[in-house]
Design a protein around this nucleic acid. Sequence first.
DNA 1: CGTTTGGTTGATGTATGTCAATATTAGTGG
DNA 2: CCACTAATATTGACATACATCAACCAAACG
Lengths: 263, 263
Amino acid sequence: MPDSARYMMHRPEILGALRRGEVALDRVMAGSGRIYPAGRLLVEAGSPNDTIFRLRKGWVGRLRTLEDGRSQFILIFLPGDLFAVKSLFATHSPDAVQALSEVMVEQVDHRTLREAYERDPDLATRCMWQVIEEERRLHNWVVGLGRGSADERLAMLLVDFRGRLILSGTIAPDAQAYDLPMTQEQIGDHLGISNVHVNRVLRSFRENGVVAMRGRRVTIGDLDALVRIAGPLLDISERGRPEFVGVREAGGGERTSGGDVGA
Amino acid sequence: MPDSARYMMHRPEILGALRRGEVALDRVMAGSGRIYPAGRLLVEAGSPNDTIFRLRKGWVGRLRTLEDGRSQFILIFLPGDLFAVKSLFATHSPDAVQALSEVMVEQVDHRTLREAYERDPDLATRCMWQVIEEERRLHNWVVGLGRGSADERLAMLLVDFRGRLILSGTIAPDAQAYDLPMTQEQIGDHLGISNVHVNRVLRSFRENGVVAMRGRRVTIGDLDALVRIAGPLLDISERGRPEFVGVREAGGGERTSGGDVGA
DNA sequence: CGTTTGGTTGATGTATGTCAATATTAGTGG
DNA sequence: CCACTAATATTGACATACATCAACCAAACG
């Protein structure tokens, strides 16, 4: 399944291992699938956790909550992602992992998984790959949070979600719309901006015909414009992603804000 | 060597594997040590890279530069860290990796390393651990960038560097000062704030006797105060770290700014 | 069909950015 | 070791993106 393998400029020699590793995962996780409702905590912050998950359906987020109430969604997982791989090494997590929508997840105990992958290097490779891929997204996120404007961050997020949903097979490559089961407050907590400002940026996007978000659905009006806004923040490897083929290259060195995008 | 293993609430069962994996690394990297001057790019953004490094001496940073000139240090590596592990999976990196000081690094080709770890699960565990540990730091960094004030971020950074330098054996656990070979501009590019503002925050820290930074040296005047400022951003696992034992717990729910810290 | 949760909008405040000038330190060739 | 230069640090004046507060509206929900 890791179709998302195409996210990176991959070494061809590992693709076989990844595929075999995924099959091994199927075996190890067989029959463990369960459904949880939106909002449910799959991992509680600070509690011991012995489980590694594979997300089959729905959205999940890793959430850190600070003592004074501030909170941050660190990473969002989409179908096909493994999460809480860290449980292989650590007994506790400082973050909660929460279902954003109704989800279907499979699970393994860390001992079972470790025993399995000590005998099967492909399984180890599959796990390692997941963590590396996650790290790649975190790198991008750090750049976005550190250097991006609110407009850029939101555009980057919407482009990223779209690309990942396509690669996971959840939506078609030419889909104009997708479901995004997060409130504006949650989006803000992922982008590091306030819910009010998320709303304002969304309004400007809507008024410029870039994207409209109503209910929990994102409708992309002008993908080129969206990519142009996110442009500076998109890493090079993402430019070559299949779903960008045909999208005009983002313009030169100037920062573009949501306000001046022609409809 | 991964003394930094103590960074996390570790599963005891992997400590042995980690130690053996480190020894295996010694073997695989034997004789490859080289010295590079400050400023040298060890990996160039966008170029193919086949090498995995182990940092023995000095500081190294992973740097993303955007087309319009903005730039962000994504992660800083200290002695003992493996870096560019991603080269095992990806042929290119969107980021440069740059020596911040004179450095001593060892290197392996990705093929050699992969062959070695397919035969030695301990080596695989050691590599995996590095990536997971890096991811833990990225999680913290995302929270800091997303939700922290400039004061908090800088304090967090200084506390983090101190802790890691202690764990890597570079400085003594009771050291009051350490070398930080980064310009204020580079620090700003890591914290996501301007060099000017870095300077202002440093001034406020200095005036309050919290820390003084002169030349490339950090002198900690009041560790308690520093930890108190960074407090909200420090993840729970870090609170238990050996070097914090004896440090008073950060106060309740209020946000503390550099300005109101009693000397 | 009221209550809660999330969305929308305006008014106002502030942390931090930008620009620009000066001081200091570090680097370099004579 | 000095003189010159370039890099970095420091400070002030001013600009702005975004946060906060507060009210109101719309949708979801039991």
